[in-house]
Structure formats: structure tokens, C-alpha cells
Design a protein around this nucleic acid. Structure first.
Length: 450
DNA sequence: CATCGACCTATG
DNA sequence: ATAGGTCGAT
């Protein structure tokens, strides 16, 4: 049967295996999407559960997803559009969508390739499907990931939204989708990402500090200033972006090494942030950003051994960085950065309940998490908007995974399995290596200094 | 080159 | 103490 198209939306045929909005828009690639839970529908199997919104320069793009379709619409400020304007804007939004989600790339084919090359990935692919790389705006991407240093996703999200609110005027104000008429919720205002010239002003430092950016406030202002001073902030006659934004985008045409070299010139941009930008907005699909998390994944699941003078703690030295990146790149191949994103997302604690079907969709009171887990196989909560619920979901998922692990096969490790370390066990990746025969995870060895 | 401490802030 | 690090000084 054909599922209903939500009112005002257009439907693009697209399998959920090719794209999972729930994963891709919330896994820390972009920090600017807002999501709204939708009231549950009678046809719960195939109808969207959330609406996602992003403010572009001139419009707000709204998305919903069913197993077989991506539903989209765009909302503009001002009065109604003519039929012709409507047609044109829909076409523009569709073009943007195809570019932003890189729909020309067959993700299923990539998943199959990675599965052939990597047994660890093979275990994850069914649960964490549809995770692809966005093709983001380089300027927004750069600033967002300067914010990401020594930081966590919720706070980065807050910071980026605060920055947009501070430096971009409100494009439009919209009510949440399909309100339950009970309470009058305030409409949300939507702000686009501000251009470089606005962040280059000296006063930005203190303003951003006031917004809780910490030391990143300086980095952002100085980077914006550098960019504007070096490559100009006038608007070119063709596009609607500042010259330096165009220049940044132009790094797409350079080699990975040359583009990285340019990015590293900016303040607050080290190897990791540079690699994030290369991968997420500059088309460098083979690049693997290595953070502490990815490092742990490499140690735990890919038998990377800690060589060199690395001290006991997992210090991220340039040496280690290169080793991890080289190892994973070798395993995953041409689209290694994309594969990395799947593994990274799978390891996020916030995704511990991802890809597990709730068998009892009716009851989802957040409290009953612990007791019922041991008896039932696939019972699980479904809504996870409450931050508090997420930690319970972690425990629950771990229990579910442990049961499932009994029936699963031993995971082959690429190097020496005996070198596997277990630094943190509350992630999802941890579930795939519990095969019953592996040695008991050792406690993290901690040096009592002082 | 490799290593170390400082840096904002919020949460475990 | 650490969260998807980076900078500047040994």
C-alpha cells in the first residue's frame, strides 16, 4: 500500500537503508537540525515519527521519513508564493537535498564493501543502516567543529544555535508540527548560519564568551577575521555568499593534503577538526578524523597496538593519530571516512537504543527500564527525547545485546585479539565483542600520580 | 619532533 | 575527571 503523504509535503522515493534521518541528523555531523516528535499514527509501521527542520539562507527545510520515502517541504517568510514560485522553490529544495545527502552515492553498495572487508562492520550494518556522510557547508562546518574541541554534542548544539540566534536575524517563526492541541507551545524562530564578516568583528570574542563558548570564542573570531582578511567578505555577483566562503568551498577542488594544510592555518583548527571539515564538507571521503573515541574503537575492535612512547593514558599524539587513521583507512578503503562515521555513531551512547524495534509500541512510560529487561528479548522503549531516559536505555540495550550475543558468532579481529583492551563498556560497540570466550576485560590501569 | 599544562563549561 | 582538542612553551 502507498503510505500517505503528509499535508504540504512532497515525496521523494528513498529507502531508509539509503538514509536514516534519525541517525544522520543527530550523530554529530551537523548541530543545527531541530527535531520534533510527531503524534503516533495508527499506521505506526510506515509513518514518520519525527519532523526535522533546518534553516537555510532563505527558507526552512522540513523533513520527515517513512521506510520508503523522504518527505520534504520548504517554508518561506512573507506571503504566499505563486504556483510558479512554489514549483521553482520545490525544485531548488530537491536539488539541495540530493546534494546535501549525496544521494548519488549508493550507501548499500558501500555497506556491502565494508562488510566484505571488515567483520566488525558486518555485525553492525543491519542495526546501524542508513548512516551516510552529509555534504555540509564548509564555513558552518568549520566554525561548528572549532566549537567541538574538548566538548560534547549537546553543548556544541547549544552553542551553534546560540551563535545563529545572536548573529542572524530571525528568518521566520514557525509553530511545531501537528501540535497536540492541549497546550499552546511557543513557535520556534529559525536563524540561518551567519556569514564570516559578522563573526570577524572584535566584539565577537566577548559576546561569544558571554554565550558560554569559553576559549573557543577567541578561536572563532580570529578564524573569521583571518578568513575575511585573506580572502575577502564582499558578495560576489554570482552567488549570495561572501568571497571567503566561496574560497573555502573551493578547497573541494584541491588535494586532501593541500586542503588540510590550508585549514590548519586557522586558529582552533588542529588535525582532528581539519579532518572533520575535509570529510564532512570538502568531499574528502577517505579522511578519518581520529579523536579519543575513534582511538578507543581502534584499540578495542581493530587490534591496534599502542607503539611508540605512548604513556599509559591514551594520549592522542600526532603519531598515534596517524597510526589509527592509517590502520582504519587501510581496512575500509576509498570511503573510509564514511565507514568511520557509521562506527562512530554506533558507539555513541545516545544511540544505544538505535535500530532496536520496540515490540510493545503502546507503553513507553520512561520509568520501567530495569526490571523487565532480563526476561524479554526485544522489549524496548521507543521515545528517547528525554535526556534522562537515555542512560536507562544504555543499560537496557546492553542487556539486550548480551542476550543476543550468546547466539552470535565470534568476532574476528584484524590483528591480535589478545591486544584488545576494554576501556569503557557502556557503548554499543562493546556488545559485539562479547562472545563468551574472550578474556575478561581488564580494568583501566590508572597511574596514581601526585 | 614528542610531551605537558592551560583553557571554558557542564555533567558523571 | 572527562567531553569528538588546540595552542604555546619546553
Amino acid at each position: 500500500m502507498v503510505s500517505l503523504i503528509p499535508a504540504g509535503f512532497r515525496a521523494l522515493p528513498l529507502s531508509a537503508v539509503q538514509l536514516s534521518l534519525a541517525a544522520v541528523l543527530k550523530c554529530g555531523q551537523s548541530f543545527r537540525w531541530t527535531s520534533y516528535p510527531l503524534p503516533s499514527s495508527p499506521d505506526a509501521e510506515s509513518s514518520p515519527t519525527h519532523e526535522y527542520r533546518l534553516c537555510l539562507r532563505d527558507r526552512v527545510v522540513c523533513l520527515r521519513q517513512s521506510p520508503d520515502y523522504l518527505f520534504y517541504r520548504s517554508v518561506f517568510p512573507g506571503e504566499h508564493l505563486s504556483a510558479e514560485q512554489e514549483r521553482v522553490s520545490n525544485e531548488e529544495t530537491l536539488i539541495w537535498l540530493k546534494d546535501y545527502f549525496q544521494l548519488d552515492v549508493d550507501l548499500v553498495e558501500l555497506y556491502n564493501q565494508w562488510s566484505d572487508r571488515d567483520q566488525v562492520f558486518n555485525k553492525l550494518k543491519s542495526r546501524f543502516s542508513g548512516i551516510r556522510m552529509l555534504r555540509q557547508d564548509p564555513w558552518e562546518n568549520l566554525i561548528s567543529f572549532i566549537c567541538s574541541s574538548n566538548n560534547n554534542i549537546p553543548r556544541i548544539t547549544k552553542m551553534v544555535h546560540a551563535l545563529c540566534k545572536q548573529y542572524s536575524p530571525s528568518l521566520i517563526s514557525l509553530p511545531p508540527p501537528e501540535l497536540s492541541e492541549s497546550d499552546c507551545q511557543v513557535p520556534a524562530t529559525y536563524h540561518s548560519f551567519p556569514p564570516p564578516s559578522l563573526l570577524a568583528a572584535p566584539g565577537v570574542k566577548s559576546t561569544l564568551r558571554g554565550l558560554g563558548f569559553g576559549y573557543r570564542a577567541d578561536y572563532i573570531q580570529r578564524t573569521a577575521k583571518m578568513l575575511v582578511d585573506t580572502h575577502g567578505c564582499s558578495i560576489s555577483n554570482t552567488g549570495s555568499r561572501e568571497n571567503c566562503e566561496e574560497w573555502l568551498t573551493g578547497l573541494r577542488d584541491m588535494s586532501t593534503e593541500a586542503a588540510r594544510e590550508e585549514l590548519l592555518k586557522f586558529v582552533g583548527v588542529g588535525r582532528k577538526v581539519a579532518d572533520c571539515v575535509l570529510l564532512m564538507s570538502l568531499d574528502k571521503r577517505e579522511v578519518i578524523p581520529v579523536d579519543t573515541h575513534v582511538h578507543q574503537i581502534a584499540l578495542k575492535h581493530y587490534g591496534l597496538r599502542t607503539v611508540g612512547g605512548s604513556k599509559g593514558k591514551g594520549a592522542m599524539t600526532p603519531r598515534i593519530y596517524d597510526e589509527v587513521a592509517a590502520k582504519l583507512a587501510d581496512i575500509w578503503g576509498e570511503y573510509a571516512g564514511w565507514a568511520h562515521s557509521v562506527l562512530f555513531t554506533a558507539d555513541l551512547k545516545a544511540f544505544s537504543s538505535f535500530g532496536i524495534q520496540p515490540s510493545t509500541p503502546a507503553r513507553d512510560m520512561g520509568a520501567s527500564a530495569s526490571a523487565s529487561t532480563s526476561s524479554s528479548k526485544r522489549k524496548h522503549d521507543e521515545t528517547r527525547n528525554k535526556a534522562e531516559m537515555q542512560r536507562k536505555a544504555v543499560l537496557m540495550s546492553a542487556a539486550v545485546a548480551a542476550i543476543a550475543a550468546v547466539a552470535t558468532v565470534v568476532v574476528a579481529v584484524h590483528d591480535d585479539p589478545s591486544l584488545l583492551k576494554d576501556e569503557y563498556s557502556d557503548s554499543d560497540l562493546s556488545s559485539i565483542e562479547e562472545d563468551g570466550s574472550s578474556p575478561r576485560p581488564e580494568k583501566r590501569r590508572k597511574r596514581s600520580s601526585d
